[in-house]
């Protein structure tokens, strides 16, 4: 039965080549299974590396997952796999390429910067830190983001998004710009925006029709006060991705906020 056990147990361990230069560690990820790549990342971080460079990444999962360290920077060259920065608590990760699904899943602190597109369910249950995506994103992005005390998660997506953007959102700031998109002929965002939303704020650069939004969501033009909150967020995003803040601000923003923190408070009849 052993050979049917699947890839994890059956995979031959190939230790990646690690080049250390004082606080910098460069790891060649070509042909390396995610488990062994992540082991190598954790090892060099535990060994004091502050700058980890991953070369030739090709879909390896869980990069930065569960890494608890402040002041550590991880550069990813290639395409990051699913669940990038899941449960991450502190480091900053920069992807010079695209990322797949589940970026920042249940993330606590740190920054993820993606110089490309990203997939579905980004920032699921994210409680803190920031995710910056330069390009398009998929379905259910920012789902169930939540804030707690001084932890306020931020996600800014530079392209278009698909359905269920900000679903169940309970806290934090979720922004969609519609600028760096492959789908310029399509709507900025799909349907069911903010469905089940009961906290936090969504900002859209441009407009959205009420039929596109969940029934729990109030749609208003962003006021000056709103923009005062949003501007520093966008400034950091532009700085991280080399974009022009004035150009981002050239189009008015729409603000989506929930009507209630208790959307289902009156749904039940206790027996």
């Amino acid at each position: 039965m052993t050979q049917n056990r699947g890839v994890v147990e059956g995979y031959v361990k190939v230790a990646p080549v690690v080049v250390r230069d004082v606080e910098k560690a460069t790891i060649d990820a070509a042909g390396i299974y995610y488990k062994h790549l992540n082991e190598a990342i954790r090892e060099v971080v535990a060994d004091g590396a502050k700058h980890v460079v991953l070369e030739n990444v090709n879909g390896q999962r869980y990069l930065g997952t569960g890494v608890q360290a402040k002041g550590v920077k991880i550069d990813v060259h290639g395409t990051a796999g699913n669940d990038l920065a899941m449960f991450m608590d502190g480091p900053s990760v920069e992807i010079f390429g695209a990322a797949q699904d589940g970026v920042g899943n249940t993330m606590n602190a740190g920054t993820v910067t993606i110089h490309g597109d990203a997939g579905d369910v980004l920032g699921y249950g994210m409680r803190g830190g920031a995710v910056y995506v330069k390009g398009d994103v998929g379905y259910r992005v920012g789902i169930h983001m939540k804030a707690y005390e001084n932890l306020v998660p931020v996600m800014v997506c530079g392209g278009n998004a698909r359905d269920f953007f900000g679903e169940y959102m309970a806290g934090g700031i979720l922004v969609l710009l519609g600028m760096n998109t492959q789908f310029a002929d399509q709507p900025l965002v799909g349907s069911f925006v903010g469905a089940g939303m009961h906290g936090g704020t969504i900002y859209l650069r441009g407009t959205v029709e009420s039929w596109q939004c969940g029934k729990e969501v109030g749609i208003t033009e962003a006021t000056e006060d709103d923009m005062a909150t949003l501007k520093p967020v966008l400034a950091k995003y532009c700085e991280a991705l080399g974009m022009d803040l004035d150009e981002v601000l050239a189009v008015p923003f729409t603000k989506l906020a929930p009507f209630s923190h208790r959307p289902y408070g009156k749904m039940y009849a206790p027996m």
């Binding site: 994890v8 999962r61 869980y62 997952t65 699913n82 669940d83 899941m86 449960f87 699904d101 589940g102 899943n105 369910v121 699921y124 409680r127 259910r140 789902i143 169930h144 939540k146 804030a147 707690y148 932890l151 679903e167 169940y168 309970a170 806290g171 089940g196 009961h198 906290g199 923190h261 208790r262 959307p263 289902y264 408070g265």
Partner: peptide, 29 residues
């Protein structure tokens, strides 16, 4: 780790699990 007084809503599915393959992904995460 949520604010006082807001509903704590657990979605019906895990939205990162739509298949056995996705479940494997969360198990290994």
């Amino acid at each position: 780790m949520i604010p006082q007084g807001t509903d704590a809503i657990s979605p019906a599915p895990h939205h990162d699990i739509y298949s056995i393959e996705d479940l494997r992904q969360l198990i290994y995460a």
